[in-house]
Design a protein around this nucleic acid. Structure first.
Length: 350
DNA sequence: AAGACGTGGTT
DNA sequence: TAACCAAGTCT
């Protein structure tokens, strides 16, 4: 126990001198509001600080409190989230804001189990809010913490089998005093010193505590399990305009990939490339479909997408659940990056 | 309990 | 270019 306390003490001392200023952090010695901690933690899931910062500022300015966020329409939230990815986070963010407003009087519960029950809040985020916003003795374990702990204790077991052990070991480090700062310090250490490749052990405050460093295997940990390779899927998008130049868009289903976001209508995405006739069977209108040269490529987490685009002008615009919009007004819609690429590609060919 | 789920920057 | 990586959650 003494060893762990010393380790945390060294870490906190380092943190006090190297603490990063981040938009969601409170001044030293102060607690950040639960709303801000929650908003930042949801955005930071699988997402870099650099990518999050402008979105965080925008959200906080537009919806300063959770009640205002709860009062927003889902479409507004998705629109503000566009480009950040993992859109289920935005849907759950909105759902969570409404749950906190309706079931908890607009204040986040302090109990970890109650936090865990809210939409979009898993074990990591529940612990992060408890530690950072409420200064409870809680141990959020993210990728940074897993890496720091795997090296500190030279845990060679690869994920996911090794994760319970990493969580257990991480918890032994959490101090009774300043548990919130300790949690942030662990993540800062992982983000700035204990890097995935080329850890900067010379500048590490825990150099002398680190088993992996002693054994000279810091850069080899944590061991990663082999990753599967990404298949390629193909699709055809239909760039349909009416005589006034308006473009046909449609809303994707609420669940699943890019759920609730807008898209240029198209075929399903599958591994086999589409033939002309079978693709046009999925077109939103009967028309003279001409192929736009080139392809649009986009990489998702679990597959690569190759899209070709066919364009036509229709004489009889039919709504049929679709939305007609002038290209100049596309900024009003929640378009995922893949669809922005389609738009750019099609407009360039016009 | 693996796989689904985005995106942009770095190597 | 392709692979890897980033403060995970849900099913």
């Amino acid at each position: 126990m003494t060893r762990q306390r010393d380790t945390s003490g060294r870490l906190l001392r380092w943190y006090d001198h190297h603490r990063r200023e981040l938009p969601w952090r409170a001044p030293p010695g102060r607690r950040a509001e639960p709303y801000r901690v929650w908003l930042s933690e949801i955005m930071l899931q699988q997402t870099t600080v650099a990518a999050v910062a402008p979105y965080y500022r925008h959200f906080l300015k537009r919806w300063p409190t959770i009640r205002e966020l709860a009062a927003a329409e889902l479409d507004e939230v998705l629109h503000a989230w566009q480009g950040l990815g993992y859109y289920a986070r935005a849907r759950n963010l909105h759902k969570c804001a409404r749950a906190v407003s309706a079931e908890h009087g607009g204040r986040f519960p302090e109990d970890q189990a109650a936090l865990l029950a809210l939409p979009g809040i898993g074990p990591y985020t529940a612990a992060a809010i408890a530690a950072i916003a409420f200064d409870q003795v809680a141990t959020p374990v993210d990728g940074n913490v897993e890496r720091v702990v795997a090296r500190l204790f030279a845990v060679a077991e690869p994920a996911p089998a090794g994760k319970p052990e990493l969580r257990r070991l991480a918890a032994t480090l959490t101090p009774v005093r300043r548990p919130g700062d300790h949690a942030q310090a662990m993540m800062d250490l992982g983000a700035t010193i204990c890097l995935p490749r080329g850890p900067l052990c010379d500048g590490c405050p825990l150099h002398d505590d680190c088993q992996a460093q002693k054994q000279g295997i810091a850069a080899q940990l944590p061991r990663r399990s082999p990753k599967r390779q990404r298949p390629t899927r193909h699709g055809v998008a239909f760039w349909l305009r009416d005589r006034d130049g308006r473009l046909l868009l449609r809303r994707r289903p609420e669940e699943g990939l890019l759920g609730g976001m807008m898209e240029v209508p198209g075929t399903p995405w599958r591994e086999e490339p589409w033939g002309k006739d079978e693709a046009i069977a999925h077109a939103p209108a009967t028309a003279e479909w001409r192929e736009i040269a080139g392809t649009v490529s986009h990489v998702f987490t679990h597959f690569r997408l190759e899209l070709t685009v066919r364009a036509a002008v229709t004489e009889e615009p039919i709504g049929k659940g679709g939305i007609w919009a002038m290209p100049a007004e596309l900024g009003r819609y929640a378009l995922p990056t893949a669809m922005k690429k389609v738009v750019r590609h099609a407009l360039a060919a016009d």
